[in-house]
Design a protein around this nucleic acid. Sequence first.
DNA 1: TTGAAAGCGCTAACAG
DNA 2: CTGTTAGCGCTTTCAA
Lengths: 339, 339
Amino acid sequence: MVTITDVARAAQVSKKTVSRVINDHPDVADATRQRVQAVIDALGYQPSMLARGLVQGRSNTVGVIIDESAEDVFGYPLYSENLRGISRVLSRHNFDMLVHFARHETSYTDLYYQRRVDGLILMSMPVDNPFLPVVLGGDIPYVLTQRVSDHEAPAHWVDVDFESGAVQALEHLWALGHRQFAFLIGPPNKTYARLLLRGYRQALADRGQDIREDLIVRSQPYISASKTVVTALLERPDPPTAFACSDDMMAIQVIQLLQKLGYQVPGDLSVVGSDDALIARLASPLLTTIHQDAYRKGSLAAEMLLEQLGKQVNSPSSRQVLLPTELVVRGSTGPVRSR
Amino acid sequence: MVTITDVARAAQVSKKTVSRVINDHPDVADATRQRVQAVIDALGYQPSMLARGLVQGRSNTVGVIIDESAEDVFGYPLYSENLRGISRVLSRHNFDMLVHFARHETSYTDLYYQRRVDGLILMSMPVDNPFLPVVLGGDIPYVLTQRVSDHEAPAHWVDVDFESGAVQALEHLWALGHRQFAFLIGPPNKTYARLLLRGYRQALADRGQDIREDLIVRSQPYISASKTVVTALLERPDPPTAFACSDDMMAIQVIQLLQKLGYQVPGDLSVVGSDDALIARLASPLLTTIHQDAYRKGSLAAEMLLEQLGKQVNSPSSRQVLLPTELVVRGSTGPVRSR
DNA sequence: TTGAAAGCGCTAACAG
DNA sequence: CTGTTAGCGCTTTCAA
């Protein structure tokens, strides 16, 4: 492996001069620069980031931690989009990312202390992760891709405005004449599920209506309520005319269930999802859903982290960013059916 | 940041002795070891992999390259599973992974020369990637997660036996009485699509039947043929009674299309997918599909790479591994409908 | 069983 | 504009 010393010797200059050339330092005579560059090209020299990192005390590397307890979630396209967003921004700034799947019980600060990553992006970290306080209270640069409780010290995070998305979805359904709603919602310990439900609840309250607790059905992410449960919902007095689901997979399953039960979607019943995953644009009918920009969430997280590291980034600085959501109206919602 | 020097000073020993302790070197007196360890714990010392990597000439890091031209593919759950498999094995051996999204035109050998990763895992690298020969012909340890042409020098890869999966699927359909098959297949430049089709073609040939070229429909991954095309297929003389799709997303779209056209699946028509993604287990009807173990593919790739790096791994060594596929029979295939 | 010295490949500080 | 010296934090000789 060719080193800076090799280049210096071959170009008849000092190592420092070579260093200046590869770092685009201005104080180098053009002639020298060209000579050195020629040698660099000829020898195929590539500077070692390892050595550079050691002496500079930073590695130009960011650690991305994905909590393994989000394993059930990980098959989902949004994660990959987050990663792509992060990666794109980082590579623009000559950073690389060390991706780490963390078990709940292992400290992810090791990446910082051992690998000397310059900062951490914590993806989908559960709020009760035991090592979270260490990061939030320490001096490790970090960004969370999920908000943490408002009561804590102001943390760095990007998140998606699920509540607003839910409000938009309900407004849409309301305008279509729907008044009875069923909610198929992920488990309460998932923040997004809580927030969506809160949004729906608020939007209903604004219209003078209480959410009907008997029409809220909890299930695991991506797995909708069973046929039995859905049937039971529809047999209640004042049955729901619209189903709001906390992700697109659930929504699509519900649609299929309803179709199998002989209902038309959106003719008889309406369904909205959340996320706007690829599948929402492929299902039949096309899914009306709450769009979130997962790529942007990732790229923004990276930008926020780079800014903490003193880099100049495009977006204005802020400790906490709530990305907007937008209801995408497609084919799974329609006017309430007159009886 | 506390260094080995701090520990040495505090423990009244030389740096080398501390080094021996953290590397579990045998030649240390128990008393010394304990004293040093106590200091390490007290100070919270973590050795810098950067410094260690510099002196040892290896970084205990693996580069994982995901070709960006596979962008359309990346929303798909299998990728994430590959990554999880890689990560799990690596961390067991104290390796970390540097994940890099490579554009087609940028050389991914930079990771090796600049970041000094010890080896590369190339995910979904197109066979015509211009830098592939550099890796295959060079002395960089690597593993591909996709086979390359048999005519090349023997390369290191793990792949999935799509052909065998297709054969199994066709056998299953044949046994159910199906004789006319439509194939909704990804683009020809995708290896998996080629191999699936080859398997189907072979299985048909073994039964004395030629594949009907007019029943082969090409489309992009995850996007099935349109309603018009599917309708046209069904209006051909001797229409297909079964649809074989090259991924689960396509299969599910086709099922929905068929249902919308008034057909029962599997009552009137059968559909098989490929991959066994999460969605296959959630769709309605549950999808009969060709299962592949994406997690295993990742973990095996990591093991193969570590072995090249001289590590002791579980699996026996081999340059090329073809992981088995298995047809999972669920609800989307049934006996051909008697007319 | 332990330590001193040297050096991995690079850059920072300071001269010249 | 260029070079010298020193040193980042660790491991590797080689001696003691």
